[in-house]
Design a protein around this nucleic acid. Structure first.
Lengths: 291, 291
DNA sequence: GTCTATTACGTCGCCCGTAATGATC
DNA sequence: GATCATTACGGGCGACGTAATAGAC
């Protein structure tokens, strides 16, 4: 059974004539006759009685006609739907992400997303969350993945993905003791981590000295590992592979902002960005029912 | 878009491999690759991402897969359903009918039924209703069309189709007057018409003389037209084309049995007979909605 | 090195078109 | 005689198979 046969059959019934159907289909009449004949032979029934002047549906023909219409209709629907999804599959997507993402597997997300949407050109930009939010404002990135600080401006919308904790990291073999006089490594003033450090130190009753300024979490860890000082940082980064450091849990750990998906409020996400947002959220769910 | 492409695509996804799908389909792998490629080209989207070791559905592929399964499932259903109807289309059907059928167009019914069920071999047997009922008892006919008399044995089931009236027919130019001394033409004793004649005459206070016995309604009319006598008969027969007679309505016309479809109670109708029964009943309805 | 998908290429099938025949009004 | 469907026959497109190539583990 071929689609062509169903199309021809429907046309013959609709026009009530092999000749008119053939004209409508832009083919010769014998082709129509042959296909109808083949269909009848395969199904083993007569579909319509020909009287050279008029055709009439048999009971089997009536049944087939109804089913054929359904099938052909669904086929048209498939073409439309796939084309619509295809439009989403096109386009560009720029994602901004900080280094510290905790349990969020950005690499895996990008890989599976690219498999599911190979037509979308992906670009990734990393940096501190403040810089990335600036890129969001300027329309340079569609979505930002990073820590969501408490003082986040309300022109952004947030979807939380994972929690994060704060730990103290020191060089290996560094004696545990008072932190008051330790040199600290931290991000530049104005960064979220710097605020966390000050908050924690103030709670402990001292002003931290920050002689070393790093430009990213990875750098902080490298500097600490080299013995230049100590630092507070996200637990996930401290525990991930990298330069060796001693990780010390904090008794009264300040709140570290969780990792979230940020977008510009009021600016509608592109279809590609919306698809990626859903994809990341879906990936965070522990049980992923594939179908 | 071809059915073959949908089948191949579904097989590839189900097996998770071009090679296994090809083996299952009993074709070579390149044929599968080519068809999937054609499908993707026509739809303008990538359906699955190949990594030579594993295939993954894209979003468009997932959508198409769901639709394809529906369509292929419906196609299987069509084959089954048509085959089932095809079984009904086969077989033999023997119909018995009396001459007098009133507004029931048996010829038309047989013609349209044959157009709708060309695979059913039709046979028609005519005669008096008593004979036909005998044929029904002996299994020689599946259905009987004819007048349904009041004394019908309850081993038959009845579906009424049309009413019938009784008229008096006389030769042309015959003077209207008392019927007491007229010679009557009628069917043999025991027939339904004979009973009707006696009932009417008794009501009028006389015993009818029946010197002429005919073997069918048409014969009655011919004998009356020839001037041999008068008769009571079904109005439809009297008014239909044939030998000229004078039709006289009766003041106190006895009830003439209506025309009905008779079958043997307890004996299940063959599929062909059931279809014909429905067909005749449907044809009797004034408005015939074709779809 | 093995397994898998793609590309290359030749062959066969079948769908279509033209022409002739048959049937019905 | 006109119209319509069917048969007869030839050509061309396309799907399949075999073989070779490229890529992933």
């Amino acid at each position: 059974m071929e689609l062509r046969q169903l199309v021809y059959f429907e046309a013959v019934v609709r026009h009530g004539s092999f000749t008119r159907a053939a004209a409508d289909l832009h083919i010769a009449q014998p082709a129509v006759s042959a296909q109808i004949r083949l269909l009848e032979t395969e199904l083993g029934v007569t579909l319509l009685t020909r009287t050279t002047r008029r055709i009439a549906l048999t009971a089997a023909g009536e049944l087939l006609l109804a089913r054929a219409k359904r099938i052909l209709g669904e086929l048209d629907g498939v073409r439309d739907d796939v084309a619509q999804v295809g439009a989403v599959l096109r386009g560009r997507l720029a994602v901004g992400a900080t280094e510290v993402l905790g349990t969020v597997d950005l690499g895996g997300a990008l890989a599976t997303f690219h498999r599911r949407h190979p037509g979308i050109a992906l670009s990734l930009r990393t940096g501190l969350v403040a810089e990335l939010l600036g890129g969001l404002d300027r329309g340079e990135v569609d979505l930002v993945l990073g820590p969501v600080h408490a003082d986040l401006a309300d022109r952004y919308t947030v979807r939380m993905l994972a929690a994060e904790d704060v730990v103290l990291v020191t060089p290996l073999g560094h004696p545990a003791g008072g932190l008051r006089d330790e040199p600290f490594v931290c991000l530049p003033p104005g960064s979220g981590l710097r605020a966390i450090l000050h908050e924690a130190a103030t709670a402990a009753g001292f002003e931290p000295a920050v002689p070393f300024e790093a430009s990213g979490p990875g750098e902080i860890r490298a500097l600490v590992s080299a013995g230049l000082g100590v630092a507070v940082m996200a637990g996930s980064t401290a525990r991930s592979p990298g330069p060796p450091v001693r990780v010390v849990p904090l008794d009264q750990a300040p709140e570290h902002p969780g990792i979230g998906l940020l977008s510009r409020r009021g600016r509608r996400l592109s279809p590609a960005a919306a698809a990626f947002r859903q994809h990341v959220i879906h990936q965070m769910r522990p049980n992923v029912p594939s179908r």
